[in-house]
Design a protein around this nucleic acid. Sequence first.
DNA 1: CTCAATTTTAGAATTGGTTCAAGTTTTCTC
DNA 2: GAGAAAACTTGAACCAATTCTAAAATTGAG
Lengths: 204, 204
Amino acid sequence: MSGLRERQKADRHRRIIEAAAELFREAGYEGAKIEAIAAQAEVSIGTIYNYYQNKGDILGAIVSLEVNEVLNAGRGVVDNPPANVGDALDTLVGIYIEHSLHYLSKEMWRQAMAISTQQPDSPFGQAYTALDGSLTEQISALIARLQALGLVRQDVDGKALGELIFNNMNMMFIEFVKRDEARIPELRSAIRRQNRILVTAIVV
Amino acid sequence: MSGLRERQKADRHRRIIEAAAELFREAGYEGAKIEAIAAQAEVSIGTIYNYYQNKGDILGAIVSLEVNEVLNAGRGVVDNPPANVGDALDTLVGIYIEHSLHYLSKEMWRQAMAISTQQPDSPFGQAYTALDGSLTEQISALIARLQALGLVRQDVDGKALGELIFNNMNMMFIEFVKRDEARIPELRSAIRRQNRILVTAIVV
DNA sequence: CTCAATTTTAGAATTGGTTCAAGTTTTCTC
DNA sequence: GAGAAAACTTGAACCAATTCTAAAATTGAG
């Protein structure tokens, strides 16, 4: 089943994503006109809408790639966490945050977040919510791992704690991308300060 | 300085907000055409753009009214909190959540949140961030009050704790408005469960 | 009352995302 | 390898927000 059509389709997908990623970064999300993306990808406007429901979904595809990389990177920390609860959390949070601005600009994040709340039932909206869920689960998995290692009390509600940590971090990240002048080190130390309260509550 | 002109201006503001609020609720944000809002408010399209920079700012003005009401309602709890830390938090959270859907539909919230992240520097974007800040401060004020009453440990970092609680609640609220079928009781109990972890960490 | 400044108005023009009817290309069948 | 069906591509047309323009209305000062 890998006829010409399949190959061309995959190739067009790739070209559209690459063109969009480049233009989004250069001109910003709004500045990157569909017409320009189509021209750069060497397809017609109609083809773009054949592949993606709307402009937001193109950005969504790019964001998904990015977040999946972050999830992969996080796996390393969960498998082999620092032997200190605070450091373990900080390391995982650090990976999420540092990675996140590697391919996506703050402006792209703002748009992506906005679209995911605006159209929660669109393909991207659902994918974004699922990605948030995966990140939350990964944090919960870290908690579980730390419990298994005897570093966190057994009676801690891991699921609720994972949600709490993710929700707080995510909200901080949202505020962070809203302010262009905000810097990563300050973001991380603010989150560390907030998590400290939790850490004291859960260490054995 | 309260000439006829001033009064008429205030009146047009009010008519625009009322018309928009009604149409947003009836037809949804996108469904409410500027033309229709103008007609219902008995002003011209140009006048609307003279009063508000764009459609989002109209929604922003409505949201601001709403959140300020919520802040007022919250003041009562801060001044006179239940004598149990968990209940105190739950009561305040409850007021925020229950009030929030009084005038604004979930769809209006989604749009408002999206716009505030999309355009953080617009008048509404800044106002929204400021409102979030006020809510956070109010939660911190409650913590301080509980400390003063001897219900919360003195060495607790009230500011960080307030942020943590607000960020988590806000994120939960965002997810809540993203799903039309989500219900308030479940939202509140999920937040209660998350806050329980914090409560155990901070009660004397 | 009159005039100048300000505001409102209607509507035309612009803009950019999205849709759609018509035309092409690829695949399948014999 | 010819013809038909299916899938895909195309770009012109559509729609609603926003901007712009020139005329009309309103107000406050003198």
